[in-house]
């Protein structure tokens, strides 16, 4: 199956005065994939999404969404949905007004699916949005984003305040509906471990730059940890690039680039234990190796 890129950027840059929020970013997103846009707070995720959805303007660089510029472009914008954490609603709006208005903007809106989600998230339709809890407010966005079935959907930290059960139902519905109605989904989140298995591709942005742009599956296999007696670990990693290391008494662990089967055997023969690394840990370690100020978020 060959897929065409839905999003393409080239040298995308956005400056706010002295601050370069997005710095010469080039990447593409393939049609019908679920992509994670990950990174720390302030890394530039939201700015990238605002640029891609035509809500902000690039200082320089190119953006093509469905092959065209998104800015003031109705044929592109009508195919997008952008669910953001900071979504504002008109004064006195109630959820029922949101769901009444949504079909005007999304041609693939599915009312039945929306109703099913409203019930599942136990959303009070008749309460003023101002009075909703943080989780209920997030649920409004999640329901709009899913039921809109837009060909390109952005979720920017969509579930602040949603409890674990609600988040799980969001993931389950996202996967099931994506399978039935394939579309392109860009998901930005801090909860990397929760979403890692859902992602097909991972983009990590740090300090305005894309530092990882990789297939989730190959990314997962791209590092290995070795653990064992300190001298054995030290001897094994001597001529290898170490992404992270840790010591506890006479024991040590080191995170390395992926090992070949022969190297794995060598490690096992040296009495070392091999292990994997979660996507979250991997991203934290890679980002640290890239820029030492990246703090552990786990």
């Amino acid at each position: 199956m060959t897929r065409s890129p839905v999003i393409e950027t080239e040298g995308l840059t956005r400056r706010f005065g002295d601050l370069t929020a997005v710095d010469d970013v080039t990447f593409s997103v393939q049609e019908h994939s679920i992509v994670g846009l990950l990174g720390r707070n302030g890394a530039g995720k939201t700015t990238v999404m605002q640029l891609l959805t035509g809500q902000d303007f690039a200082t320089s660089g190119e953006i093509r969404i469905f092959g065209e510029s998104p800015v003031e472009n109705a044929s592109v914008l009508s195919r997008l949905s952008f669910i953001k954490e900071s979504q504002r609603y008109p004064e006195d709006f109630k959820p029922k007004h949101v769901f009444k208005a949504a079909p005007w903007f999304f041609e693939h809106w599915n009312e039945e699916f929306a109703q099913e989600l409203i019930e599942e998230f136990r959303l009070p339709l008749n309460r003023r949005i101002k009075k909703l809890s943080r989780g209920q407010l997030s649920a409004v966005g999640v329901i709009v984003g899913l039921a809109a079935r837009a060909p390109l959907t952005f979720f920017d930290e969509p579930y602040l305040g949603l409890d674990a059960v609600a988040r799980q139902s969001f993931y389950d519905h996202l996967l099931a509906d994506y399978a039935r109605h394939p579309r392109t989904i860009v998901l930005s989140t801090h909860l990397i471990d929760e979403v890692s298995d859902l992602l097909e591709h991972v983009l990590v942005i740090d300090d305005g730059r894309i530092i990882i742009d990789q297939d989730a599956e190959s990314l997962r296999g791209s590092v290995t940890t070795v653990a064992g007696p300190r001298h054995a670990v030290e001897r094994f990693v001597e001529h290898r690039e170490v992404l992270a290391s840790d010591r506890l008494g006479g024991l040590a662990t080191a995170t390395l680039e992926a090992l070949t089967p022969a190297e794995r055997r060598e490690a096992a023969d040296a009495g070392l234990e091999l292990g994997g690394v979660s996507l979250q840990q991997l991203i934290v370690r890679r980002t640290r190796a890239h820029a030492s100020e990246f703090g552990a978020e786990s």
Partner: peptide, 11 residues
């Protein structure tokens, strides 16, 4: 399989 294991259908 994807729904059951909660993984990406491509995987």
């Amino acid at each position: 399989f994807a729904a059951f294991h909660r993984i990406n259908p491509a995987t």
